[in-house]
Amino acid sequence: MCDTCGCNITPGNKHLNEAGGKLSHSADGKAAVDVLHGLLGENDRQAAHNRAHLEKHGVLAVNLMSSPGAGKTALLEATIAALKDELRIAVIEGDLETENDAERIRAQGVPAIQITTGSACHLDAHMVHDALHHLDLSQLDLLFIENVGNLVCPASFDLGQHRNVVLLSTTEGDDKPAKYPVMFRAADLLLLTKSDLLAVLDDFEPARAEQHLRQLANAAPLLQLSARKGQGLDAWLAWLRGEIAARRAARQKFRAAPKLSGVLRV
């Protein structure tokens, strides 16, 4: 939703803002000003700028979110190893401290920009924008943004990504989507990671994880994989290739219609 055209006025709140609504009054000596702006409007504007910047260069941006230790960096290592001869990849790494993850990515032979957030629990669009300036987007097909390991705050901040991929490791419990609905509702793809451990974990049921995801009205696909053991990677790589193909097709459509005014979002 944007905060310029009024689309943020929903059936649930419009009665409050119409003439005579309880927020339209002004009291003596005071002036009440209706605003109805998204509180994160500044972040959302920056995110839209980031997205436009990425789309100009035909780069697919994927935001990876999970709890700490669910296997985001291990997934990236395996993904880069499988795709680096086929696609030009870069990674933006978010952590509170250390360059450790960026160094793991660089060891795979692709550029990695580490954002250390200090005590901030999430990446925001401005941090990602700064990081984008350290990358040559004209030389990229695929940008991963590895968010700070946290199932709460990162879900609230648009970074300019095209897709959200949420990882749920089998050691965490299959009811995580029910416990962190804001995060799992935002997922475009749910990866059940460390699937090699399912054989020894008798309390994680992938079908239950899926059921909890559906109860959030989320139709996102679920894939099981183990980055360490190389299991299930093909379906994940196929999903990525499909997303990249869709992004390229959208870009060609955009180029074919240069006279269109406004922003074409697909």
Partner: peptide
């Protein structure tokens, strides 16, 4: 929603 509705 996460909205600033009004300011007095």
């Amino acid at each position: 929603e996460l909205l600033l509705a009004s300011v007095e």
